[in-house]
Structure formats: structure tokens, C-alpha cells
Computed example of a mutant assay.
Amino acid sequence: MGVSETERQPSVVEPGLDPGWIARTVAVALDEDLGAAPGRDVTTQATVPADAVGAADLVARQSGTVAGLVVAQETLSQVADRFGLDAPQVTYVAQDGDDVERGQVLATITGPVQVLLTAERTLLNLASRASGVATATRAFARELAGTGATVLDTRKTTPGLRALEKYAVRAGGGTNKRMGLYDVAMVKDNHVVAAGSVAGAIAAVRATFPDVSIQVEADTTEQAIEALGAGADFLLLDNMPTPVLAATVRAVREREGRDGVPAHVDLEATGNLTLDRAREVALTGVDHLSVGALTHSAPILDLALDLRSS
């Protein structure tokens, strides 16, 4: 009753979500809604015959950027497997990363009505959440167009949904920063306190994990220059007023290619980066703006599943 990988993921933003991650996440979400597998939907299974077949439209109730449509087929297939029914088929009209209008049909789903109604909330929860993140990201990407700067996400994600939310950032036109604590070292003020100095923290990371890049957080121009001298690969410029940020960018650029400083140092602005301030910050010459709000504060994009009347 399963479906092939091609059928499951017809609309994917590269790099796509790991199918194994999708399957595990959907299973956990269904357990929450139905109870431990196989679970039950007491309303639907009491009121809808198991042999009833129908169609439903996945519809955008708001304009925005969609993401997470890629989870739909897996969600439907797992519900079908739990109930011993045929897996519905999804015909996609929109793709992850598309801008859509209110009222637009994103996909049509055909199959057992019990499966459609039981899978509805899990499917919508995941796709609406991802679409909200993609919509917020697209707004920043548009604001930064032509500046040379990109918008990045952070680790301020929903536990268990990081892969989905970072995928949604990519769908919205943003860039993933580090995926976790394991792939990039970020030396922050507490690490400096623990190590005794910026140079000590950098040296400790290089000795222990020589394969990772090292970013250092700086609150002032002086801290940024100190971090450069200590061997930082790139800098996180935190909560700087725009004039201070611009001065720091100039100071760093003047040192590039000299005294062991790389020819180009990636500079990332962060802290209090609202949409109305984004372009002003980008025009200081930073390479990136990291915005935690993309994932920790983005409202969902309202999506609905409308069963067609027979």
C-alpha cells in the first residue's frame, strides 16, 4: 500500500528532506493524534464507511510562499497503512517554494475518505508550519534583493522540526547557517569566559576539532578586530547599531588579505533585525543577516483541506 519515492516527493527544494526523517516525523505526529499505532479516529471511523472514496483539495487560505507539500504523500500513506486501506494519490498543482494566492488550490488528493480526514490535521500542521517559515523568509529575501547580502536562519527552531524548518528557509529563498552544534564552531561570550580569551577559545577548538570552521561573536569593532587577529574564519556582528556596524565592516575590509587575515572574511549581522531595517543593515556591506524570527516567530500560513461534495 506504499508509494514509490518518485510519487512521494514530486516537489522538492534541493537539498531535499531526508525521506527517513519525513517518515519518522510523520509517525510521531500521527501517534500524537491517533494514539499509539495503529491508533484510531473515533469520529471519522464511526461516520465514514471504510469503502467510501472521494477527493479533497489542499487550498491556501492566505497568500504566501508554500513549503512542506513534500510531506503530504507520506502522511496519507502512513494513515492508509494503519487502517489497512489504499494510499490516496496526490496531484500537485503548486510546488514547494511557489508564491501562491489566497484561495489557490495547491494539490488534489483522491482516495479513501477515512484516510483523507484522518490525515488532514497532521498534513496541515506540518505544511502550514513550513509554509509560514518560507513566507517569512521570502519577505526578507525580497527586501535584500540587489544588496549582495543573504538571509540566514539560526538554531532557534522547533524541537524535532529543525530539518523541516530549515528546508522551508531554503524554499523561501534563504540560506541555512549551521545545522547544529556539530558542524560549525561559534565562539560566544560564555566560551571566551570559559577559555580565558578569544585566542584561547579559538586555539582550543582548532586543537580539538581541526575540521570545522570557527565563527566568533563580536559586540564591538574592537572585539571584531581582536577575533580576526586570533584567527577567526568569520564574524558574527551582534546587536550593533547601524553606524557601528558600518564602521566595523570597513575596519574588517581594510585588514583583509593582510597579516594572515583571509582575502575575504564573511561578516554576519544579527540581533534586532526586523524587516524594515533589513536593507539598511545589508547596505553596510555585510554578507549575511541571520534572523531567528524566521523560525521562532513566523506564524503559520493558513492552509485547508476541503473535501469535495459527492
Results as ranks from 00 to 15, higher is better:
Val133Gly: 01
Leu117Ser: 02
Gly111Lys: 01
Val113Gln: 03
Asn125Ser: 09
Gly132Ile: 00
Glu120Leu: 02
Arg142Tyr: 08
Gln114His: 05
Leu144Tyr: 00
Glu143Pro: 08
Thr118Cys: 02
Val133Trp: 02
Arg138Val: 10
Ala134Tyr: 07
Val113Glu: 11
Leu126Trp: 10
Ala145Ile: 08
Ala134Asn: 10
Ala119Asp: 09
Leu116His: 01
Leu144Asn: 12
Ile109Thr: 02
Thr118Asn: 10
Leu124Phe: 13
Val133Thr: 11
Thr137Ile: 13
Leu116Lys: 01
Leu144Ile: 05
Ala139Gln: 15
Gly146His: 03
Thr135His: 03
Thr137Glu: 10
Ala130Arg: 09
Val115Cys: 09
Leu124Asp: 14
Thr135Pro: 04
Ala139Thr: 14
Arg121Asn: 10
Ala145Gln: 08
Ala119Gln: 01
Ser128Gln: 15
Arg142Pro: 12
Ala130Asp: 04
Arg142Lys: 15
Glu120Lys: 04
Ala139Ile: 11
Ala130Lys: 08
Asn125Glu: 07
Thr137Val: 12
Thr137Phe: 10
Thr110Asn: 11
Val115Gln: 03
Leu124Met: 01
Ala130His: 05
Glu120Thr: 07
Ala139Glu: 15
Thr135Lys: 12
Thr135Phe: 14
Arg121Tyr: 00
Leu144Gln: 04
Ile109Lys: 11
Arg142His: 15
Leu126Met: 15
Thr122Cys: 04
Thr137Met: 07
Leu117Phe: 08
Ile109Ser: 08
Arg142Leu: 15
Gly146Met: 14
Val115Ile: 10
Thr122Met: 02
Leu117Val: 03
Thr137Ser: 02
Gly111Phe: 08
Arg142Ile: 14
Thr135Met: 05
Arg121Phe: 02
Arg121Lys: 01
Ser131Leu: 08
Val115Asn: 13
Thr135Leu: 09
Thr137Cys: 04
Glu120Met: 02
Ala139Met: 15
Ala127Lys: 03
Arg138Gln: 07
Leu123Thr: 12
Val133Glu: 09
Glu143Leu: 06
Glu143Asn: 13
Thr122Trp: 04
Ala145Ser: 13
Thr137Arg: 13
Thr110Glu: 14
Leu144Cys: 08
Val133His: 06
Arg121Asp: 02
Asn125Met: 01
Ala145His: 05
Ala127Val: 05
Gly146Asp: 07
Phe140Thr: 08
Glu143Ile: 05
Gly111Tyr: 02
Val113Lys: 00
Thr135Gln: 00
Phe140Ala: 12
Leu126Ser: 05
Val133Ser: 06
Gly132Asp: 01
Ile109Gly: 13
Thr135Val: 03
Thr110Asp: 15
Ser131Gln: 07
Leu126Gln: 11
Gly111Asn: 05
Pro112Arg: 05
Ala134Phe: 07
Glu143Gly: 11
Asn125His: 11
Val133Met: 00
Leu123Gly: 12
Leu117Cys: 00
Ala134His: 06
Gly111Trp: 06
Gly146Glu: 03
Val133Phe: 03
Ala141Phe: 10
Gly132Met: 04
Val113Met: 03
Glu120Ser: 06
Arg129Gly: 11
Pro112Leu: 09
Thr110Gln: 14
Ala119Leu: 02
